[in-house]
Amino acid sequence: MRKAFVIVSALSLAAFALQFIFAAVGAFTKPAGDDAYALHSVNGMVVIPVLTLVTILFAVLAKAPGRTVGLAALPLGLVVVQALIAGLANGSTDAAGASTPFGLTIAGLHALNGIIVVHVVVSVHQAARRLANLPATDVAPVAVREGEPA
């Protein structure tokens, strides 16, 4: 299960890297229609959440420490924040439908949150690799107080 955890965390990291590429595709598509960000949207709203859930599952099955399982779950919450930020940025337009300074600032937070979530996913992948390199008996050690049975 540890190797599977490493593999799925690497796939998740790849999906997040592709997310930046898909955002650039949307930004540089001319003319920019409603479907310019289709790849970005599908990857961010379907592929990434599914891979994150699978990563959480494999972290649990690999008997990763609770902190690592929690770290594996964090991208799911950050993806929800991404969707909220994007919705707020897209909704922050003037009467003519043009971007406002407030909307553009919020859009910048969307990019910043994307960078943060990539750092989290990198940390998850590093934790998975460390776990995979431990001997099977070293998984999720439990602290035992002196005098208590192990």
Rank of each mutant, 00 (worst) to 15 (best):
S99L: 15
A89M: 14
V80Q: 03
H119F: 14
V118L: 15
G103W: 02
G77V: 13
Q82D: 06
N113T: 08
L104Y: 00
V117I: 10
L109G: 11
V80L: 11
L84Y: 09
A111H: 02
A107V: 00
Q82Y: 02
V79I: 10
A83T: 06
D94Q: 13
A95V: 08
A111G: 11
F102Y: 14
L104S: 05
T93S: 06
A98R: 12
L88N: 13
L78N: 06
P101H: 13
G77F: 12
G77L: 12
T105L: 10
N90R: 11
D94N: 15
V79T: 11
T93V: 14
A107I: 05
G91D: 05
G108N: 12
A96L: 06
A96I: 03
A107E: 04
L112F: 10
A111D: 04
A107N: 07
L109T: 11
H119W: 08
L109S: 09
V117L: 05
A96V: 03
I85Y: 05
L112T: 14
G114M: 13
N113G: 01
T100P: 02
I116E: 01
L78Q: 11
S99A: 15
A98W: 08
A86E: 05
L109D: 01
I106F: 09
I106E: 10
L112Y: 08
V81K: 00
G97Y: 09
A111I: 06
A89N: 14
T105F: 11
I115Q: 04
A96H: 08
H119T: 04
V80H: 03
V81F: 08
L88C: 08
A111W: 01
F102R: 13
S99T: 09
G91I: 03
V118R: 06
L78I: 06
V80R: 04
P101M: 10
D94A: 15
L88F: 12
L84R: 14
I115E: 00
L78E: 09
Q82S: 08
L104W: 00
A83C: 01
A89T: 13
G91W: 04
A107Y: 01
V118E: 11
G103K: 07
V79G: 08
S92N: 11
P101R: 12
I85C: 07
T93F: 05
G87S: 15
A107H: 02
A83Y: 14
I85F: 04
H110M: 07
T105Q: 10
L104M: 02
V81I: 14
G114R: 08
A111K: 08
V117Q: 02
G91A: 01
L104H: 00
A111Y: 06
L104F: 00
V120L: 00
I106R: 06
T93P: 03
L109C: 04
A95P: 01
V120P: 00
G103P: 03
V79Y: 05
N113W: 00
A83V: 04
L112W: 05
I85H: 11
A107G: 03
G87Y: 14
N90F: 07
A111V: 13
L78K: 07
S92Q: 09
L112G: 12
G77T: 10
F102P: 01
A89C: 15
G97P: 00
A96N: 07
V117H: 00
A111R: 06
S99E: 15
L104Q: 08
A83R: 07
A83M: 13
I115W: 03
G108E: 04
L112N: 02
V118A: 15
L78Y: 09
I115L: 09
A95C: 10
G87E: 15
T93N: 05
P101W: 10
S92G: 08
